[in-house]
């Protein structure tokens, strides 16, 4: 390929060099699993957040006349043991699972970013102790910590969200610290400091944008982890409690009927698998798109 052709391929129609985001989006579009995942996730989120707002949507409505009904008619996926519509419960469960997943990820990302940025930026004593705490947390079986927290404070969406978020920030902290260490010696940081910028401003305005791609990738993978953990807790009976539906507690419920109605156990599981898989594919695709140098690592 000649020099001119190469430039034409890289430059946009207006002749300017394309922005980083444009390039990243272009790379992401070529990643077929990531595109498929994005479409699926869009669909799931639209359903989960819009359908429950429709009039007539009621995941708690029981139909005593048709319990454990087969799919078809008024109930496209059948009914559960007290005659509630399985499809409605799956959609409402999606909303609960996604909200808990997204919020616990947000908590984990904020905690991890703050700890990682402080450790990486100030170094020395702060770094040594913060990272020691991070390593210690990382070495612990988090599920047991979560169980202890849930035992003390009870279940419910809020406790579950906090417990997951506060036990999954370690990876983020390490990544942010590494990136901060790498960029804090850059010339633009020296320049900002020479201009009188405060430490806080340098971290927010100059370092954070550099670290953002890594955070975005970790956040995407973090949602997958959080959804999986929430559903596991709800399955165990210590997460989201019935009658509020969540994919996890629907599965716990369905396990009693696997001898007679195995299909009840299939739907929520397939949805968890596909959603988590999509978030993982998205995270992987974003990693390739945002930082091609990380490919195949």
């Amino acid at each position: 390929m000649t020099e001119a052709l190469g430039n034409a391929a890289v430059r946009g129609r207006d002749g300017k060099a394309p922005r980083f985001a444009t390039l990243a989006a272009r790379r992401l579009r070529r990643n077929r699993p990531a595109v498929a995942s994005l479409l699926f996730l869009a669909l799931v989120h639209v359903f989960a957040f819009l359908v429950p707002a429709l009039p007539g949507f009621d995941p708690f409505l029981t139909d005593p006349g048709s319990t454990l009904a087969a799919p078809g008619g008024a109930h496209p996926l059948g009914t559960d043991e007290v005659g509630r519509d399985v499809l409605s419960r799956l959609i409402d469960g999606a909303r609960v699972s996604l909200v808990v997943g997204l919020l616990s990820m947000a908590l984990a990302i904020s905690t991890g970013t703050i700890i990682g940025a402080l450790a990486g930026y100030f170094g020395g004593f702060a770094d040594a102790w913060l990272m020691r705490a991070t390593d210690a947390m990382m070495a612990l079986p988090t599920l047991f910590l979560i169980l202890a927290i849930v035992a003390v404070f009870g279940g419910g969406p809020f406790v579950v969200m906090a417990a997951i978020g506060l036990t999954s920030w370690m990876q983020v902290a390490r990544i942010v610290r590494g990136e901060t260490l790498r960029w804090r010696v850059a010339e633009f940081v020296d320049a900002a400091r020479a201009l009188g910028a405060s430490d806080g401003r340098i971290m927010r305005r100059h370092l954070l944008p550099q670290v953002a791609p890594a955070i975005i990738v970790t956040a995407t993978l973090g949602v997958a982890y959080a959804i999986l953990t929430e559903s596991a807790l709800s399955y165990l009976g210590v997460g989201i409690r019935p009658p509020t539906p969540s994919w996890g507690n629907m599965l716990q419920n369905a396990q009693q009927y696997i001898w007679s109605q195995p299909r009840l156990a299939i739907y929520p599981g397939v949805l968890i698998l596909l959603t988590v898989l999509s978030y993982n594919f998205m995270g992987d695709g974003l990693r390739d798109a945002l930082d091609p140098s990380l490919r195949n690592v």
Binding site: A224, L228, S231, A232, Y235, L236, G248, L251, A254, Q255, I258, W259, P262, A265, I266, P268, G269, I272, L273, V276, L277, N280, F281, D284
Partner: peptide, 22 residues
Amino acid sequence: SFIGVSIPSFWFGIVLTIVFSV
């Protein structure tokens, strides 16, 4: 590997039970 990280272990267990026990 992607499937392995994404599959909820409790569901996988239930599916195995349905196939091999039920």
